[in-house]
Amino acid sequence: MDFTRRNILAIGSGAFAVASVAGMPAFASKTDDAIAAFTGGVGVTEGGIDLTAPEIAENGNTVPVAVSAPGAVSIMLLATGNPTPAVATFNFGSLAGSRRGSTRIRLAKTQDVVAIAKMEDGTFRRAGATVKVTIGGCGG
């Protein structure tokens, strides 16, 4: 093949494009960072953990949520659409009666709430729920 400048440029950009698709890491979100810090990079599978949250929040300032993961050592709760995703981490002690916790959280807007459980066997489980956060009528 005659390597004209055009050919070389074409081959070069093609190679570059391939490298981008294959090798370059995707831009990680804050939520992904928080999860990675919690899991140390170990893969997370769905299931084995329950997350209860309302479909529509009466008011984003106080949203009741509950998490449950039998066999978990700790459970981390994240609000993926909040300025900072971390919400709380429940660490269960030797006298914990169950691997469950309930609390009330603030959600800045409609978003996915995510719960990640660290299990006794070192694996990680994930559950998510979409919560709609609305604006009241009179700005209230």
């Binding site: 300032n61 900072t84 919400v87 660490n91 030797s94 603030r106």
Partner: peptide
């Protein structure tokens, strides 16, 4: 003996 130890972030409600 410990029962539970919770880390709270600003997203926990008032």
């Amino acid at each position: 003996q410990n029962v539970i130890d919770v880390t709270l972030e600003p997203a926990i409600s008032t």
